[in-house]
Lab assay of single mutants.
Amino acid sequence: TEKEKEVKRLAKERGLSPDQVRELAQRAGFSPDQAKQIADEFA
């Protein structure tokens, strides 16, 4: 999704850790499970 792409782009730009990616995703409105899946891509 657009929102997911945006979260991943920000995460890459900022060099976020997987935990930070998960927090960012949840703040963007993703469920905890979705946020974990997104964060796992950065693990």
Rank of each mutant, 00 (worst) to 15 (best):
P32A: 13
Q26R: 14
G15D: 07
G15Q: 09
S17P: 04
P32M: 08
K36Y: 10
K5F: 10
E13R: 09
E13Y: 08
K8Q: 05
A39V: 04
T1S: 14
R22N: 07
E13I: 14
K8E: 03
I38M: 06
A25K: 01
K3F: 08
K3E: 07
Q34R: 15
D40K: 11
E23W: 10
A25E: 00
E4Q: 11
K8S: 03
K12M: 08
T1H: 14
Q20C: 12
G29F: 01
D33Q: 14
L24C: 05
I38D: 01
A43M: 12
D33K: 14
A25L: 11
R22I: 15
Q34G: 04
K12Y: 12
K8Y: 07
V21G: 00
V7A: 02
Q26D: 03
L16T: 00
K5R: 13
G29M: 01
D40M: 13
A43V: 12
R27P: 00
E13P: 02
K3S: 08
Q26T: 11
K36G: 07
V21I: 10
K36A: 13
K3V: 10
R14W: 15
A11Q: 01
T1R: 14
R14H: 13
L10S: 04
R22L: 13
T1N: 13
L10V: 13
V21F: 03
G29T: 01
E41V: 05
Q34K: 15
K5D: 14
E13Q: 12
E13V: 11
K36N: 12
K36H: 09
P32Q: 12
D19R: 11
L16F: 06
A11L: 02
K8L: 14
R22C: 07
K3I: 11
Q34S: 05
F30H: 00
E4M: 15
Q34M: 10
K36V: 08
F42P: 01
S17I: 04
P32R: 08
F30V: 02
D19H: 10
A35R: 01
D19M: 12
E41L: 07
L24I: 04
E41N: 07
P18D: 05
E6M: 14
V7N: 03
Q20I: 03
A11C: 04
A28Y: 15
P18Q: 10
E2P: 08
P18V: 12
F30R: 01
E4Y: 15
E6T: 08
F30M: 04
E6L: 15
A25F: 04
Q37P: 00
G15P: 00
P32N: 08
S17H: 08
D40P: 01
Q26H: 07
Q26A: 11
E2V: 10
E2T: 10
G29L: 01
E2H: 09
E6C: 15
L10D: 04
E23F: 07
E4N: 05
R22H: 06
K12E: 06
K5I: 11
I38V: 04
A25D: 00
D33Y: 07
E13M: 12
A35P: 02
K12W: 13
D40I: 13
D40F: 12
A39R: 03
K12I: 08
R14M: 15
L24W: 05
G29Y: 01
E4W: 15
F42Y: 15
R27Y: 06
R22D: 04
P18Y: 15
A35E: 02
S31F: 03
R27Q: 13
A43R: 12
E2W: 15
K3Y: 07
F42I: 12
A35D: 00
D40T: 10
E23M: 14
E23K: 09
E6W: 15
G29A: 01
L24G: 00
D40N: 10
E6P: 01
D33E: 15
A39W: 03
V21P: 00
E23I: 14
K5V: 09
F42D: 02
L16C: 06
G29D: 00
Q34D: 07
P18F: 14
E6F: 14
K8V: 11
K8C: 12
D33R: 08
R9N: 06
D33M: 13
E41M: 09
Q20M: 06
F42V: 11
Q20G: 07
K5M: 12
F42M: 09
S17T: 14
E23V: 12
L16W: 05
A39H: 01
K5Q: 14
V7P: 00
R9S: 05
V7F: 12
V7Q: 01
K3D: 07
I38H: 02
A25H: 00
A25T: 01
R27S: 10
G15S: 07
P32C: 14
G29S: 02
L24T: 01
E6Q: 11
P32H: 09
A11N: 01
V21E: 00
K5E: 13
D19W: 11
K8P: 01
L24E: 04
A28K: 09
A28E: 08
E41P: 03
F30W: 04
S17R: 09
S31A: 07
K12N: 07
A43T: 09
K3Q: 10
Q20L: 05
A28M: 15
A35H: 01
A28W: 15
S17K: 09
Q37C: 08
G15C: 09
G15L: 05
A11S: 05
Q34V: 11
A28P: 00
D40C: 13
D19E: 14
L16V: 02
A43E: 13
T1V: 13
F42L: 10
R27N: 09
Q20D: 08
Q37M: 11
L16D: 03
F30G: 00
K36I: 10
V7T: 03
S17W: 06
E4P: 03
G15E: 06
D19G: 08
Q37W: 08
R14K: 13
L10R: 06
P32F: 12
K3T: 09
A39N: 01
R9M: 05
D19N: 10
A11G: 15
D19V: 09
Q37K: 15
G29P: 00
K8D: 02
F30T: 00
L10E: 08
R22M: 14
A28F: 15
P18T: 09
Q34P: 02
Q26P: 01
E13H: 08
S31I: 03
